[in-house]
Simulated assay, not measured.
Amino acid sequence: MTERIVALFARLMFARYLLASIAALSCDFIAFLALDHGGATPAVAAVGGYAVGLAIHWIISVRFVFSMAGGPSPVQRVGFVVSALLGMGVTMVMVSALSALGLAPAIAKLLSVPVSFLSVYAIRKYGVFASA
C-alpha cells in the first residue's frame, strides 16, 4: 500500500512540475521571440528567454511543486541555479547549432525543450529537492 502512495505522489509531483514548466516555458518563449525579433542572436535570445523562464519556474517550484517546511535551503537554491545553468547551456547549444544548420530559431528552441526539460527535472527531483 505504501508503494502505491509513493508512486501516486511521484506522479503528482511530475504533473505539478510539468505544469510549472509549461508556465515558465510560455514566459521563456515570449521573451525569446521578443529578443529574436529585436535582433538578438539566437544564442542571446535563448539565454534571455531561459532566464525569464527560470525566475518563473523558481517561484512556482518552491511554492507548489517541491513543498518544504521552512522553504528551500541555501544548498537547494544553489542546486536550482546550477541545474538551470545546465538546462540553459543545453538550450543555448542546441538553438545555436540547429539555427546554424538552417532551422528557424523558434523551431530550434522548440526542439531543445524536451532535452532540457527532462535533464533538469531529473537533477532537481533526485538531487536538489530529493528530500522534499
Score class of each variant (00 low, 15 high):
Thr2Trp: 05
Glu3Thr: 06
Arg4Val: 10
Ile5Asp: 13
Ile5Tyr: 08
Val6Cys: 08
Ala10Met: 11
Leu12Cys: 08
Leu12Gly: 07
Met13Lys: 15
Met13Asp: 13
Phe14Met: 11
Arg16Ala: 02
Leu18Thr: 04
Leu18Asp: 02
Leu19Gln: 11
Leu19His: 06
Ser21Asp: 02
Ser21Gln: 07
Ala23Trp: 02
Ala23Val: 02
Ala24Cys: 04
Ser26Trp: 12
Ser26Arg: 04
Phe29Leu: 15
Ile30Ala: 11
Leu35Tyr: 00
His37Tyr: 10
Gly39His: 05
Ala43Met: 06
Ala43Asp: 02
Ala45Asp: 00
Ala45Lys: 00
Ala46Ile: 04
Gly48Ile: 01
Val52Pro: 01
Gly53Arg: 05
Ala55Met: 13
Ile56Arg: 03
Trp58Tyr: 13
Ile59Ala: 11
Ile59Phe: 11
Ser61Val: 01
Ser61Met: 07
Val65Ile: 04
Phe66Met: 02
Phe66Glu: 00
Ser67Thr: 06
Met68Val: 08
Pro72Cys: 13
Pro72Met: 06
Ser73Lys: 09
Pro74Ile: 03
Gln76Thr: 02
Val78Arg: 11
Val78Cys: 09
Gly79Cys: 13
Phe80Tyr: 15
Phe80Ser: 03
Val82Tyr: 09
Ser83Phe: 06
Ser83Asn: 05
Ser83Leu: 05
Ala84Phe: 12
Leu86Cys: 15
Gly87Ile: 03
Met88Gln: 01
Met92Cys: 12
Val93Trp: 12
Ala97Cys: 07
Leu98Tyr: 11
Ser99Asn: 06
Ser99Phe: 05
Gly102Asp: 07
Leu103Ile: 04
Ala104Trp: 06
Ala104Gln: 10
Pro105Gly: 04
Pro105Thr: 03
Pro105Gln: 07
Ala106Tyr: 12
Ala106Leu: 15
Ile107Arg: 14
Ile107Ser: 14
Ala108Phe: 12
Leu110Thr: 07
Leu111Gly: 14
Leu111Thr: 13
Val113Leu: 15
Pro114Gly: 12
Pro114Ala: 10
Ser116His: 07
Leu118Lys: 08
Val120Trp: 07
Ile123Pro: 11
Arg124Glu: 15
Lys125Pro: 04
Tyr126Asn: 12
Gly127Ser: 14
Val128Lys: 08
Phe129Ser: 05
Ala130Asn: 12
Ala130Pro: 08
